[in-house]
Design a protein around this nucleic acid. Structure first.
Length: 876
RNA sequence: GGACGCAUAGCUCAGUUGGUUAGAGCGCUCGCCUCACACGCGAGAGGUCAUGGGUUCGAGUCCCUUUGUGUCCACCA
């Protein structure tokens, strides 16, 4: 890598090269090693159809921070990457693409269609992988998996068979959510409810005995063709007497009973409900209780079928219009009431879901849910933040059986076979060619495939070779941390939990780190339809991956949504540039000299100060990362690097390095300090900004091949110098105060003024004389215990008073007012602390260090007050 | 209907187990192209931490109330 650093950091020139370097060295790869502790993360596998969006970028950034941190901490860290076949989403896209060629699925046939799908996967599955690499993700690519690869498919078959044999998978004719556009069933989790404008149509059903009619209300009049009863509440006195009678279903003239069922709410609508078991989940339940026939009036695309009589062939909405018109003509339509109601839509295509009775496969959830609830209740798996366990419990405690069969071709084909001769159902791990009951060869496999989440539920262990007992599984599983958004707790986290507990008898991960959604600058969800999505790749190209990562990690706490704006990325880019230039400064001063990357034996005040600050930040950042407070950690690093290291330490070092009074040993020590502190800081920052830290690390004196495999800094109390730190900070305070006064008085930097420092801390100030002189543009510094300078600008600090004689600039009156104001403030504070120290409760209950602190503040404030008083007297 | 989150500087947000002078970025004001950096430097202005109450020696932080706002779950046809 080249040694010359440009004035402006250009990420695009270095990132790809560094990534290749890491990969070629094999640093991302982890192998079983019993001498090291494993740390495992499996990536939430992105859809093969997808492009990387900000949500992925956030998710992957957080995972990479954890993985890189743990790797540097000495763990055998492995991050397993891969992609998800995303059954319904992918199939929809392929079908859509085929449309332009005038082809349908059926034209191609299953086999040809799957060929196309695999080609599609090759093409698009790789783009997202390449994009994840651009982010700097240190995934072990030698372990890349796909939910439909051989191993994962084997796991799927195994699970299906196991559950079937245990009686936890069954096949049955039930009402399910049907998407008429995707032409498949979807699970409850895959239905999105959205509020839509609709009507409440009040319809009259005449009693068969001619004694009148009942009025009922419905939002979906077209389903009346499938009505098989009318229901009222058994306690409803208005309708009690009608129970047992029958009504004549209008338009179709079918006689149906009036039944009583608790499900009917008396005070909603008219208190009479039409019962359509084939097209409403609640009605289906009612139908089961009363043994009602189920009449399915629609086909797979929600078009009316032969049971719809003369409406056959109409789509459901057209049928609705006609039925309403016909009812009106027959005088059976009482009124139309506009209402807003929630309508279920397909989470993939947003088509209105049609509840439909059909033959499907289900997973019996109750026995599986219980251990999953217990595992979180007893702390085997923890959510971060913890509040998400409530959402998790709520879902599992109210769970219904999971419909897992999909009428799709792209996916894991259900390993069930049917004998056409004897009707035997055979569920098998291997392909079945003959009936094991009657021996017939006339056996066919189930046409359906499995819900895409069925395979992703197995991801944490299928990637390590389960169901085989592999070394990897034994060593890397269970995984340590799962990082994902709160929006897929139901889809994925829940299902991994109960699957893992059932098949591996272990929780799949110890911690679930939940993050929020990345929203746009106005706080709106990024979406295709709004067109407000920001492409992470464009951001990386413009600002660099480090800037993007830094932005996503900063100002964001677990579980909360964040807003993304380019301004924030630009601020992150500026930070990267700041580090870059600090490095340039150091490099410039190494100047081909042999400088050791170590703490020198002789330490100056400022060295002890920065080492103390460094150790504090090491301790805090490490703790923060371990507690998943990544946003806090990165903020602390930002402050340390910019405020402490760049604004102060580098400025001090300039004076040491440029001053002719500095001896060569001190200069050399300063160079070592710069290199050492910079290197340690780069290591601390590496998990967050891997590229720039590697680039700079490489050009500074170092041992080893790469920062990413170096050891993360450890807190060392031998380099914490509390009292020196405080003293150094008093010097900095003085510098700041002098600058402040000069700025307020509009003194140009070119005007050098003499500065008198009265202090009882002489040795410290003497040592830092040069710093004060250079950093405040002072002409000359005098230090003594006291001065008698009545006509000077006076700055009162704890234990120190500074005088700047500037006759022509002093406005005595203004100066007096200022000092008086300060005195008033100091007095107030003294009173506050005094009363606190007089408070018995505080003195007896507050911890010693807090009391000490208040005592110290009280003393210095009192001191300051006295100095201010005398300064006012002097000026008068 | 149920559950949960948020409300802190003009804007967007941090604030770690309660500890005394509440922070950052952007924006704003003043002065600087100071030989690492104008993607910068120095100095500032700006906050009764939504409301009311409580616990505590001490509350932005813990508990309750109210208001506003957002999300999720359920769903009455």
């Amino acid at each position: 890598m080249s040694k010359d650093l440009n004035k402006i950091y250009e990420p695009s020139l270095v990132e790809d090269k560094i990534y290749d370097f890491w990969q070629n060295k094999g640093y991302f790869e982890a192998k079983v090693d019993p001498t090291k502790k494993p740390y495992t993360i499996v990536i939430p596998p992105p859809n093969i159809t997808g492009k990387l969006h900000m949500g992925h970028a956030l998710d992957d950034t957080l995972q990479d921070i954890l993985i890189r941190f743990k790797r540097m901490k000495g763990y055998n860290a492995v991050w397993v990457p891969g992609t998800d076949h995303a059954a319904i989403a992918t199939e929809a896209k392929i079908v859509e693409a085929m449309k332009s060629e005038g082809l349908t699925k059926e034209d191609l046939g299953r086999e040809k269609f799957l060929e196309r799908a695999f080609l599609w996967k090759e093409k698009y599955g790789n783009t997202i992988i390449e994009q994840i690499k651009k982010l700097g993700a240190s995934c072990d690519w030698s372990r890349e998996r796909f939910t439909m690869d051989e191993g994962c498919s084997k796991a799927v078959n195994e699970v299906f068979v196991m559950l079937y044999e245990k009686g936890l998978i069954y096949r049955g004719e039930r009402i399910i959510n049907w998407c008429p556009k995707c032409k498949t069933s979807v699970s409850d989790a895959e239905v999105d409810f959205s509020e839509k404008e609709g009507n409440f149509w009040h319809i009259k059903y005449p009693l068969t005995d001619g004694s009148g009619s009942v009025e009922l209300a419905t939002t979906r009049p077209e389903t009346m063709l499938g009505d098989t009863a009318v229901a009222v509440n058994p306690n409803d006195e208005r309708y009690n007497h009608l129970v047992g009678k029958t009504v004549m279903l209008p338009l179709v003239n079918r006689e149906i009973p009036i039944i009583a069922d608790e499900y009917v709410e008396m005070d909603f609508g008219t208190g009479v409900v039409k019962i359509t078991p084939a097209h409403d989940p609640n009605d289906f339940e009612v139908g089961l209780r009363h043994n009602l026939p189920v009449i399915n009036i629609m086909d797979e695309s929600a078009t009316m079928n032969e049971f719809a009589d003369k409406y056959k062939g109409l789509d459901r909405y057209e049928a609705r219009r006609q039925i309403v018109a016909d009812l009106e003509q027959e005088g059976l339509l009482c009124k139309v009431e506009p209402i807003k109601h929630n309508v279920g839509t397909c989470y993939r295509c947003h088509e209105t879901i049609e509840p439909r009775v059909s033959m499907q496969w289900f997973v019996k959830m109750e026995p599986l849910a219980k251990p999953a609830i217990d595992a979180v209740k007893n702390g085997d798996t923890k959510f971060v933040p913890a509040r998400f366990d409530k959402i998790y419990f709520n879902w599992l405690e109210n769970i219904k059986d999971w419909c897992i069969s999909r009428q799709l071709w792209w996916g894991h084909r259900i390993p069930a076979y049917y004998c056409k001769d004897c009707g035997e159902v055979i569920v098998s791990r291997n392909e079945v060619t003959s009936c094991n009951k009657c021996g017939s060869k006339n056996v066919v496999q189930d046409e359906d495939t499995l819900d895409t989440w069925f395979s992703s539920a197995l991801w944490p262990f299928s990637v390590f070779g389960w169901p085989d007992k592999t070394e990897d599984l034994d060593y890397f599983y269970p995984t340590a941390t799962l990082v994902t958004g709160y929006d897929i707790i139901f889809f994925w986290v829940v299902r991994m939990m109960f699957s893992a507990l059932e098949y591996t008898k272990k929780v799949p991960f110890k911690t679930v780190l939940i993050h929020g959604l990345v929203r746009d600058a106005q706080g709106r969800k990024m979406s295709k339809s709004l067109g407000n999505g920001i492409d992470p790749m464009e951001i990386i190209e413009k600002y660099g991956a480090d800037a993007l990562r830094f932005t996503l990690a900063t100002g964001n706490s677990p579980g909360n949504d964040m807003r993304f704006s380019e301004e924030r990325v630009s601020a992150s880019r500026n930070f990267a540039n700041k580090i870059w230039n600090a490095a340039r400064f150091i490099l410039m001063n190494l100047n081909g000299l042999d400088v050791k990357n170590e703490i020198p034996k002789q330490l100056k005040f400022e060295d002890k100060w920065i080492l103390t600050k460094l150790n504090e930040v090491i301790l805090e950042v490490t703790n923060n990362i371990e507690k998943f407070e990544l946003g806090v950690a990165v903020q602390k690093l930002y402050d340390f690097i910019w405020d402490d290291f760049c604004d102060w330490y580098i400025e001090f070092s300039k004076i040491r390095l440029q001053n002719d009074k500095t001896d060569e040993i001190t200069a050399q020590n300063t160079r070592s300090m710069l290199v050492y502190v910079m290197t340690e800081t780069l290591k601390l920052l590496h998990p967050f900004m891997p590229f720039i830290t590697e680039k700079i690390w490489q050009v500074l004196p170092h041992a080893g091949n790469s920062i990413m495999v170096s050891a993360y800094p450890e807190f060392n109390k031998d380099y914490c110098f509390e009292s020196q730190k405080i003293q150094m900070e008093s010097i900095m305070e003085a510098i700041r105060a002098i600058r402040n006064r000069r700025a307020q008085m509009n003194v140009p930097q070119s005007k050098k003024a003499k500065v008198y420092i009265a202090t009882n801390n002489e040795p410290v100030f003497e040592d830092s004389k040069l710093f004060i002189e250079k950093l405040t543009y002072a002409g000359q510094i005098e230090i003594a215990e006291s001065f008698d300078l009545p006509d000077a600008v006076t700055i009162v600090l704890p234990e120190t008073t500074i005088y700047i004689p500037m006759d022509e600039l002093i406005d005595k009156k203004a100066e007096l007012i200022r000092l008086q104001k300060e005195l008033d403030a100091a007095k107030k504070q003294v009173e506050q602390t005094k009363s606190q120290l007089a408070n018995d409760g505080f003195m007896s209950k507050a911890p010693a260090n807090v009391v000490e602190n208040v005592k110290r503040i009280y003393e210095t404030l009192k001191d300051k007050m006295e100095s201010l008083e005398s300064a006012i007297l002097d000026l008068k």
